[in-house]
Design a binder for these strands. Sequence first.
RNA 1: GCUCCCGUAGCUCAGUUGGAUAGAGCAACAGCCUUCUAAGCUGUGGGCCGCACGUUCGAGUCGUGCCGGGGGCACCA
Length: 671
Amino acid sequence: MTLTELHEILRERIRSTARGAFEIDLDYVASETPPKTELGDVAFPVAFELAKTIKKETGEKRNPREIAEILKSSLEEFDFVEKVEVAGAGYLNIYFNRSQFIAARISAEPLPQLERSTRSDAEKVCVEHTSVNPNKAAHIGHVRNSVLGDTFQRILKATGKRVEVQNYIDNTGVQVADVVVGFVYLENKTLDEIKLLDSELSAAGTTFDYYCWDLYAKVGVEYQTNEELKEKRAEILHLIEAGNNETAELADYVATRNVQCIVDTMERLSIRYDLLPRESEILHLHFWDKAFEQMKQLGVIRLENEGKNSGCWVMPFESHSGTDEHEADKILVRSNGTVTYTGKDIAYQMWKLGILGMDFFYRPFHTYADAAEVWITTAVRTENAATPEFGHGETVYNVIDSRQSYTQDVVRKGVAAVSPEKGESASIHLAYEMVALSPAAAEELGFVLSDDDKKRSFIEMSGRKGLGVKADDLIDRLEAIALAEVESRHPEEAADQKAAIAHQLAVGALRYFLLKFTRNTVIVFDFKEALSFEGETGCLCQYSAVRANSIFRKLSEGDENVAEATAFAANPEKTADVFSGEGGDDIWSMLMLASRLEETVAQAAAQNEPAILAKFTFNLAKGFNLFYHNHKILPEQDPVKRAVLLSVADSVRRSLTAALNTMGIEVPPKM
RNA sequence: GCUCCCGUAGCUCAGUUGGAUAGAGCAACAGCCUUCUAAGCUGUGGGCCGCACGUUCGAGUCGUGCCGGGGGCACCA
């Protein structure tokens, strides 16, 4: 029986007692964790709520404590409840039977499997994240998106959902056109020459996306003085959108190579995708036409005949963002007949939800080391025997930074207008704030700041300016620092093993750093903080798990196994003595904390907030470090106490490992 | 102009659909390795939770106003 299940049983009893004794239907029974273990294991402040409701409905004034007493007796009937106390003004504090709880914990299945999304009938959801414009290397801001999306995706799987991860590729936009302008007009290169350059870059130990990073910035500078070049961009953009020409072929090469580089970068952080849907297919397969037709039929959009939007198809939009009614209308088709970004996004969103009535074609794009495949969309049918079914999400999560909240709102409302049965709740914008640079960090990167910039609390990163911390650079630095540390601690270890551990630590550091902030906090990037392996870091969480594991390694070296060492279930009296003895409350609260993983994951999923899981993991690791310090486990003489300590430590390491894995962080064999 | 978000310790941030004595990391200072890994642990100092009213048994959390910071409001993507 898990903690979550016990809580639910208690909640249900409170509901039924409230119905019977007060004729009140409680739709939500709040529970909370008491601040100290002496105050119980779970508390229900429900008596306050009931007193208020009774007064409102009958006018009768009841004392919350008196109400709590009535609920108390009904909760004491469970054998897993040791006692119930009414505390303060009417808190209902529940104390579990400790020896029974830990015995149940031991007999439970060996490893808590968080990824349970194997059931084919489970609800399917789509998560879109990363979606970096394929014209340059990914920077730390893109990594925040990807880490948030990937962690959220893992959290959803842990709650039993089937999840499809999509990385949208805008391969026909102005951003790609800009780099093509650079190759064609600044560097006078043909496609073959670009391919040659590409292979030379690999030989020189750098990468195509890094080259594009610099070229993109160079084009940006050139635009400031060269109007002619801007006209060239318009021509190139047109050619790319039209397709079937040399420029489009060149642009496709540039975009595809950047996609490959970005996929490789993300793979370093254990971030993977199922599908790469491309804008070129949305254009060439005429997804918009299909969406347009439906929206016209349903009267969701209208053709303007007068005013400033004359000749455009617009969607009326109730908004707080515009100044008057007409400015709130959102243009989906321009007066020249072309579709806007928002229009394309509505069509794409409809496809994700399975309500467009059209599909892409697909082919495998890339195979990961363990043979897992990423697919990409194509405009023509290809022969692939085992093409999975993509799209058709019950719910669609879009991980997109909060600057696009307005557009996402338009998309959500547009899709809901076409499909009221799906409604607005099927589209969820997982918004997050940007990663910015502190003025000091920007200068550290070699940028010269204006006096105004120096006064700002942070500076926005900009691909166009080439201002940003490249993801691979940061990972490289983290790996180098970690490797130096591993070298000094375990010089005897094989080189590849040391490198592997350094890599796991680097991933842990970066992912945790990006996850510990809540989504609506602007991360002001600071090198010292991001490169740290001490304090509130992924490293501390990994270290804690490694230390716990080493206890069990020593245990098995002594020819004991966990089952033998924790065989105390037959002795509940002595087990209870351990919990009531010196340090018993600490041991118990450690076990309770480790038991809260499941409800924490559920909470993170319900609130769309991975930071909740990150904070929990840190607190668990921190708690274990103290537990480890205060209780010497293996030398413990009392066999029952030793068994209890081992059992608690085992619960912690399982919970910690599962929590870290849900954040995409591995536990190294040693560190 | 309209609108959304933020304001908590010197700094960076948490704070469980309102709940018990507001927490953590960093920075500073003082301690702890003969014992399961010191990337750790313990202790000290540090707070008109931006300000003012209001709602109620109870407000860092909800409402209104104000002050300060940031974002968004294109026939761009």
